[in-house]
C-alpha cells in the first residue's frame, strides 16, 4: 500500500511517499518560506523523484494540528482536495504526535510541545513505542503543563522545535527529570506521520469532505462571542 504524507503544521515542511512501511522518498525542510509557496511544488518534486502519478497512491496522511492555523490549513486543504478528487482515504494525525514519534524508543514520557504565544503551549504527552497517550493534546499555559508533569515519576523527554524557548523554565521546574533531544529530532517527518497513520483503520472515502483541522483553540472572535452569550 502506497501512502502520501504531508506535514505543514509549523514552519518546517515534510512530505513523503511510503510503500508498505518503507520510505520511497521523503523531503524534510525548514526554509521558513511560506507553505503556500513551497508545499505544492515540493509535492510535485516528490512525485517526480519517484516517477509516480498522483493517482498511484492508495491513501493520504496529514498532520491535522495543532500548530500554526494557516500552516495546518494549507496541509489539510491540499490533503483533503487530493484525497477527495483522487478518491483515496484520508487520515489525520496529531502534529504533536508526529514529532513525538521521532523519539518513540525513549523509555520515559515524551512531551511534544509547540509555542502558542504568551506563555502558552500546545502539548501532548505520550509513552512507549506505540505512543500511548498520557496527556491528550491540548492548549495550556506552560506553567500548568509543567505542574502536571511534576506529578509523574518518569523522566520527561521534550521534543518540538519550540522547546528551546522554554528550556530554562522546564529545567527550573523539573530539574534532572527533564531531558532534551538533539535538534534534528525536533523536525516533523512525514514518514513518521505515515507510520502512525498505518496503525489506524482506514476511514471511508466519503468521510473526506467532513475532515477539518484540529486547532485545539477557538478563533478569538468566536471565543469572545461565546463569552458574551454566557453573560447575556
Amino acid at each position: 500500500m502506497i501512502w502520501l504524507g504531508i506535514d505543514t503544521s509549523n514552519t518546517p515542511l515534510s512530505v513523503a511517499i511510503v510503500n508498505d512501511g518503507l520510505i520511497i522518498a521523503e523531503i524534510v525542510q525548514d526554509t521558513k518560506l511560506t507553505h503556500s509557496v513551497t508545499a505544492m511544488p515540493t509535492i510535485e518534486e516528490l512525485f517526480e523523484k519517484v516517477k509516480m502519478k498522483p493517482n498511484e497512491i492508495d491513501a493520504i496522511a496529514v498532520s491535522e494540528g495543532p500548530g500554526s492555523y494557516t500552516g495546518i490549513r494549507i496541509g489539510v486543504t491540499i490533503a483533503k482536495t487530493l484525497a477527495w478528487t483522487l478518491k483515496k482515504p484520508l487520515i489525520g494525525i496529531s502534529s504533536l504526535k508526529v514529532v513525538a514519534a521521532n523519539a518513540n524508543l525513549f523509555s520515559g514520557l515524551i512531551c511534544s510541545l509547540f509555542d502558542a504565544r504568551r506563555q502558552n503551549v500546545y502539548a501532548g504527552v505520550y509513552k512507549g513505542e506505540t505512543l500511548e497517550t498520557v496527556l491528550e493534546e491540548h492548549h495550556s499555559g506552560i506553567k500548568e503543563l509543567l505542574q502536571q508533569l511534576k506529578e509523574y515519576n518518569d523522566p520527561v523527554l521534550f521534543v518540538g522545535l519550540d522547546v528551546s524557548k522554554f528550556e530554562e523554565e522546564i529545567r527550573n521546574e523539573l530539574g534532572e527529570k527533564a531531558l532534551f533531544a538533539s535538534k534534528n529530532i525536533q523536525l516533523p517527518r512525514a514518514s513518521k506521520l505515515i507510520e502512525l497513520a498505518m496503525r489506524e483503520s482506514l476511514p471511508s472515502i466519503e468521510d473526506v469532505h467532513s475532515f477539518v483541522p484540529k486547532y485545539h483553540r477557538l478563533a478569538q472572535a468566536e471565543a469572545e462571542w461565546m463569552k458574551g452569550q454566557k453573560k447575556g
Binding site: P54, N55, I74, T77, L82, L86
Partner: peptide, 18 residues
C-alpha cells in the same frame, strides 16, 4: 490572505491531481 490561500491550495492540488 488566509481565505485566499484555501482556494489557491485547493486549486493547485486539484490541478496537480489531474
Amino acid at each position: 490572505v488566509g481565505a485566499l490561500l484555501i482556494g489557491i491550495n485547493a486549486a493547485k492540488a486539484f490541478a496537480f491531481a489531474h
